[in-house]
């Protein structure tokens, strides 16, 4: 199929996917089964999933807490190119300590894979691809044998603060005026 014909098909599909739910789910199925696609990568229409309404409050809350405890926003807003490592090092301690406090209070974080990094790992059939990512020479069928390059991180428990009507989440840090 030539490029122009494919372009035509793509646009056709694009609008059909938008209007036809059944076709959309078939298209989604096509996209999640890349191993069936033997042809080189081709132009595919944007999946027309309807995203959930964005909830940015939790993200803003986290940023505000990282700033409050660890000056995180101050840190990333600075231009560090011209600074000496010694100065960055001093500030990094503050940022590290404060951010660590927030992260450890709000989240229970544990490694995804309990083993030591660098050790051998075997993945049986049916392993959870969301929890383990294969890299390197990925061929054939499971079980796969390899080396644990990074043990991963997962959140077991999240304990976010409650925001009350007295909060404006978009203010990461209020301006401070000393009287």
């Amino acid at each position: 199929m030539g490029f122009i014909s494919r372009l035509g098909l793509a646009f056709g599909l694009f609008f059909k996917v938008l209007s036809d739910t059944a076709l959309a789910s078939r298209a989604a199925g096509l996209l999640t089964q890349p191993e069936e696609d033997t042809t080189p990568s081709s132009f595919v229409p944007e999946p027309a999933a309807t995203p959930e309404a964005p909830t940015d409050t939790s993200a803003l809350q986290l940023m505000a807490a990282l700033q409050r405890e660890g000056r995180f926003i101050d840190f990333v807003q600075e231009d560090v190119q011209s600074l000496a490592d010694d100065d960055i090092g001093g500030a990094a301690r503050l940022v590290h300590e404060g951010c660590r406090k927030v992260i450890s209070k709000w989240f229970t974080i544990t490694p995804v894979w309990p083993g030591e990094e660098g050790t051998s790992v075997t993945l049986e059939e049916g392993f959870d691809a969301k929890r383990v990512q294969l890299t390197g020479n990925v061929t054939g069928e499971p079980p796969f044998s390899g080396t644990l390059a990074h043990h991963g991180w997962a959140v077991d428990e999240t304990k976010l603060p409650t925001l009350t009507r007295g909060a404006d989440p978009s203010v990461l840090a209020p301006a401070e005026v000393e009287l």
Binding site: A64, K105, K159, P161, T162, L163, R165, G166, A167, P174
Partner: peptide, 26 residues
Amino acid sequence: APGTIESRPLLPSFLYLPNEHELADG
């Protein structure tokens, strides 16, 4: 923090008495 409630095992024994204009309502 203003407008933020978190649960902790300890309640620091401090009492803050703000000025009426100092904090947003609630």
